[in-house]
Nucleic acid binder design. Sequence first.
RNA 1: GCGCCCGUAGCUCAGCCGGAUAGAGCAUCGGAUUUCUAAUCCGACGGUCGGGUGUUCGAGUCACCCCGGGCGCGCCA
Length: 567
Amino acid sequence: MDTFQALLERRLASALSAAGLPRAGEVTPAADARFGDYQTNAAMVLAKQRGENPRALAQKIVRAIEVSDFADKPQIAGAGFINFTLRAEAVAAKTAALLNDDRLGVARADSPKKIVIDFSSPNVAKPMHIGHIRSTVLGDALARIAEFLGHDVIRDNHIGDWGTQFGMVIWGWKNLLDRDALARDPIAELVRIYKETNERATADPAIREACREELVKLQAHEPENYGIWKQCVDLSMQEFARTYELLGIRHDIVCGESFYNDRLAGVVERLLASGIAEESEGAIVVFFRDVAELADKPIIVRKKDGGYNYATSDVATVDYRVQDLKRDTCWYVVGAPQTLHFRQIFEIARREGVTADLRHIPFGNILGEDRKLMKTRAGESVPLREVLDEAVERARKIVEEKNPDLAEAEQQEIARKIGLGAVKYADLSQYRMTDYVFSWDKMLSLHGNTAPYLQNAYVRIQSIFRKAGEVPPSSNISLTEPAELVLAKRLCQFAEIVPTILNDFRPNILANYLFELANSFHAFYEACPVLKSEEPARSSRLALCRLTAKTLQRGLALLGIEVPERM
RNA sequence: GCGCCCGUAGCUCAGCCGGAUAGAGCAUCGGAUUUCUAAUCCGACGGUCGGGUGUUCGAGUCACCCCGGGCGCGCCA
């Protein structure tokens, strides 16, 4: 099923060909409703290329183009724009067709990719904190969208489960561990022993040395230390799993840093053999002398003490994803501060002949109301679980106040959908690079571009259907009121915008669309009574409601957000 | 020093490959309810898009130079 945009592009191409002109320009949604629904700049682009008059070229194109089966006669305006206005019957027919399409008109990708998405990536022996929201929620949404578009997606949790900090964790485990505390709250106890060990090591060189020895034993896979490490990983994973379950997020594989341990020596040998890496000041280093931005920014792949660092394991990770997982596309949903690191890693991969599309998808920070990095009063990062629990609790209070008659269990379930939806949407509705200010009042507001506002539109529709009782689903749609036409056109645009999200990894494009859809629906709801209207308007409006609900539900699902039936 | 990101209404933010008179929400002010969830809608007010130069028929968007803020840059991850 073609979108109107795709249809117009095809008709434009035919017209250009018939007029003896090369393909040029594009069809975009009109900037403003008074210019119709779609516009093309083809005449202006051609005029520039050929040094001809744009309006004359536009005339030529308009004479050659055939759109009368779904649009009014194209209008020429401004410097040479050609504007198209859809006919209401065509919009009605398209809307009716969408009702019977599970994909709501969204085409599958022409060439499906085999993608691995690296997202969330928390650190073992530390709690997930507010800073993990963006990677987790953004990566999950991109995975859902890519899958819906027909791509083959593997979700990989590249957990931080290896590194020098484990020397201290193991020393603390052996000397400071409180078993009861560990049973009560494993992560908190691991954090406590790590912090205390760190303090002692700072003050006492003997303890510092002992920690180093524990680390060396771990790296040699000495059974006791390896066992302690494994317990730390398992306990952490259990904790992460609870958070992911609450969020409704899953991974297909968990290949953390330790997964690559036995591949690191091989990576360095290979880089040395190929001349990509060289020895420098005792370390093994890759220089990028021929790349201007990287010329003075080498990267170490083996420390002078013989140890490897995360650059090494990231090179090994590229290998595994491309060769073992057979991926042609790798997305790294990792914060903006790591931009340089990934440029270096990708440049190494390029030198090794990797042709897969390696993409760092960076994002900005979450700020507190003071516009500084969000922290607790004590100056520590805010645990993610606390944020999510508070979101649900705040939503519950609102539901309780607005809808006291609902059973408590239902209130709780609604609160979960609203609270978590609010947190996710606050993140996804913003361009990923902007640092955004975390505000409970804003994200839980029923006004404006928020999850509850969108969920409310869905709920109002469900309420209509509950009142309507048994209605045979009709796809007889006639659009007479302006608000009906605006809503129907909006519904047709879903299929146009979804594929564009992945151009630059911007789920906020979808969020903005859904906000506008909900807006159009609310306007329709005010202007057009549904149940009290006469046939055939009643059936037609019910059909519009049904498609709106389906589109809201599907769109929010692509963002990882659920809809309640009441709220 | 080198590099990356951000700077749009009083506040919080949209604005995808350059396209027409730059849009929302909050706040402020004014309206709408015997009506399907007013948990909503409609309207008004509000802008030298940080500054400048350039490319272009056309620049918030592209290039270069400044200013301001954030972040990163050989042995942490």
